[in-house]
Design a protein around this nucleic acid. Structure first.
Lengths: 121, 121
DNA sequence: TTAGATACCTTGCAATACAAGATACTTTAA
DNA sequence: TTAAAGTATCTTGTATTGCAAGGTATCTAA
């Protein structure tokens, strides 16, 4: 159980959230573009991870896509969020924030940490 | 792929960090105690998750334990961090903070969040 | 001896990240 | 035509691991 392994574990749960966020922010984008954005954010994700994940999200109705030709290579699959995807993204955002809060609570010895916003006395 | 599933995924990577943190904060504690602390922090973890994890951490030299009798039940296994465990906990803390930062970067549309090193690019 | 509470541990399944490799289209250049 | 290189999507096999469910052992109380 080395550190890289653990870091990979940590990444796992947040990929859906990050990927949906990126697509939401970009409006529409294709896989290689998403990989680039993740890399920029220091989230190392590879193709073998991303493609099955996009397919899962599509099969669950959170994403739709259209093929579009490129001027410099093979056609691209442009993904965008469906209405259900937008709702799901909101749920993921909430879940992520709750997790961050929970980890802080556990890691800080259950001290009474409050939301930075609400603790503004 | 329902929300509960995803939330479970999100929890996965941070369990080691939370558990080592709790043991570090308490000084020494036994499994049922850890489960209680995690529950207080809204991190739902069950025995079948915790025990194998404690054993892994012990086998990797991050934890040691001593048996101790209880006045009201079977003996307890009290865990505490080894020197290596303390170092590992620091690494996990750093990794967690990096992840939180990375997710924020990805989710916020790669807005320029404080990135000390690339600030003069 | 029976029941219940507390505590620790194991087995089997399901989910999934990732390494590695496959497929397919386009351009460029012999 | 053929070959090579670049871009893009997708599949297969493996290893890890969280968790449901069940098991073992100790102590207390009737």
């Amino acid at each position: 159980m080395n550190l890289e392994n653990i870091k990979a574990q940590m990444r796992k749960g947040v990929l859906e959230y990050c990927i949906l966020s990126i697509i939401s922010n970009e409006g529409r984008c294709y896989a290689s573009q998403i990989l680039e954005r993740l890399k920029e954010a220091q989230l190392l994700v590879v193709e073998g991870t991303l493609y099955p994940l996009l397919m899962r999200l599509k099969n669950d109705g959170y994403l739709s896509y259209e093929w579009e030709e490129s001027r410099s290579g093979p056609p691209r699959k442009y993904y965008q969020l469906t209405a259900a995807g937008k709702g799901f993204l909101e749920e993921l955002r909430r879940s992520w924030n709750e997790l961050v809060q929970a980890v802080q609570t556990a890691a800080d010895g259950n001290a009474e940490i409050q939301n930075p916003e609400s603790s503004n006395a």
